[in-house]
Design a protein around this nucleic acid. Structure first.
Lengths: 237, 237
DNA sequence: CTATTTAATTGATAAATATCAAGCATAACT
DNA sequence: AGTTATGCTTGATATTTATCAATTAAATAG
């Protein structure tokens, strides 16, 4: 692992409170891999042999059923994924592919499980991480069930803006096709929904979104803290 | 707590591997409460002051946004809920109400958090419980995104049958209105979907479902292990 | 730079789902 | 039992979302 990436990984909530020696042991067992875009890292149904930590780039989690495919999440650095499958010693419920050239730290599942069983601080940090992840997913599911498509998009844009320090312009984190699947809509309807947000001060230029009237957009989106507010990690984030 | 309920609580994955003395300490701090049906136990947005364990009866988790309400889960004994909110020291993302007369063991959040921080085995058990809960929710979200309404219902009925030891008849765990919300449909469409499953050997008599041709229903439902299979708890379940 | 592919948009239509309005059961109350 | 409320069902209609087809725009390769 590059020395400059170390602090970001060390600062993950997943390792909060873990002794340096234990952290070093986990990381020294890990391999850092580079991947080009559109490489499938995980196939759903496969056993979870590694805990993945995205250090650079971006990764999509997706899932299939009966010929259909949908997007479950877009992962950005620095964060861990398929932790639950690793702990449960179970098959992965989601597939993963790189969206952009990415670097991933891969920690063998056996090491994670051994440290989890032996290191109290690590078990505590894992439980905290899983709590956050669970609550994030509850929010996603609430959004899916309680909001119509255009409102989901409006709130998603507001959350993206917030994650960019409320910048008035930002670039979408993936192709529109992927964003559409993430929001449970077709690319065609995403296009039309962008159009519907135009009167509320949203302008689209290719992959970049301009929010000209944040208040107007918020008035339309009616954001709800119990769906839209990010979980504040115990450490940084 | 009634002596006869003790084994079921003690056997929860949540307490697997926890020393008897620690378990006793947690339980002695708890209060056992009885509630009539349709009592709201938790209001979303409230802080999580207790970990709830449903000992008898049934509880609905639900959520609201902008005048709409939806059902998130139907809880049956013996299981814990709002664990993630308790650990995160955060507000509840879901509300809860009793569906039937219920008995609940309520363990003060402070006790849970103290034991969590001090008892390695408890931290491990909590992480395992959260892993399972997370994966359950991933499955729900996949189902919501990847299946049309009638297929969701068909698979739900197959899962209910499986949980009743593949009995050919069983009673729905809640009012049809609640089942409809759980499956993200209106009561009207639930009715019609039941009708659509009739040719596949599903008969409805009030609250009881008869599955006359399980194979035909499965052929229609196309169940997927990565959505429909229950997580096998580390202990029993 | 142009050719070729891929992604995104737009319009027309179809399908799925929701809403509204009766009507019919079922359960609870007097 | 009769009455009242409640939940469920059914039909008619409206809305939302998806699909199909065509076009435009953008990215990539030669």
């Amino acid at each position: 692992m590059r020395a400059q990436d170390m602090p970001a990984v060390r600062d993950l909530p997943l390792f909060a409170g873990v002794e340096d020696s234990n952290f070093e042991e986990l990381v020294s067992a890990a391999l850092l891999q580079h991947f080009p875009p559109q490489v499938q890292l995980i196939h759903e149904g496969d056993s979870a042999d590694f805990l993945y930590i995205l250090v650079e780039g971006s990764v999509e989690l997706f899932a299939c059923n009966n010929g259909r495919e949908t997007s479950m999440a877009i992962i950005e650095p620095t964060s861990a994924f398929i932790l639950a499958a690793v702990l449960s010693d179970a098959v992965c419920l989601m597939s993963a592919r790189t969206l952009t050239p990415s670097r991933l730290l891969m920690i063998p599942a056996e090491h994670i499980k051994r440290h989890f069983a032996e290191d109290k601080m690590f078990a505590v940090a894992i439980a905290n991480e899983l709590s956050k992840a669970y609550r994030q997913l509850v929010k996603m599911h609430k959004e899916a069930k309680l909001r119509p498509a255009t409102e989901r998009l409006a709130n998603y844009l507001l959350r993206l803006a917030a994650s960019h320090d409320h910048a008035s312009s930002f670039t979408l984190p993936a192709d529109k096709r992927t964003i559409a699947a993430l929001l449970s809509m077709t690319p065609e309807n995403l296009s039309r929904s962008f159009g519907a947000l135009n009167p509320h001060g949203v302008r689209i230029q290719g992959p970049v979104v301009h929010i000209d009237k944040p208040d107007a957009l918020a008035a339309f989106a009616k954001p709800n803290a119990l769906i839209d507010d990010p979980e504040i990690g115990l450490s940084s984030r």
